[in-house]
Amino acid sequence: MTSLLAILIGCLYAAAIYMMLRRSVVKLVIGLILLSNAANLLIFTAAGLERGVPPLIEEGQQVIAGTAADPLAQALILTAIVIGFGVLAFAVVLIHRACEVVQTDDMNEMKGTD
């Protein structure tokens, strides 16, 4: 399962970079979305996969019996998703405005400040 996920993550990174290299700014945003998803999935995988064992302590116990999924990695992903959501919302608004001002979505036309 881990190696399957690893391949999937690799594909996501590759697709993200490919999309970011296109000329259209809309595809650029899609690339960014893929990239943040890939990173989140990577944290999930790197922290170790455990199936069907939520990190819950049994009634009357002090510690978790046996192995359990790592809750910290999931907390990280949750935070990263929220942050990614905020930042991407901003990116979408920015690109919407930029397309309005520049009248195109072609990156090649946006070289005025280079």
Partner: peptide, 9 residues
């Protein structure tokens, strides 16, 4: 935050 984005659009 969400409404700022939605309203802006």
């Amino acid at each position: 935050t969400v409404l700022t984005v939605v309203f802006t659009l």
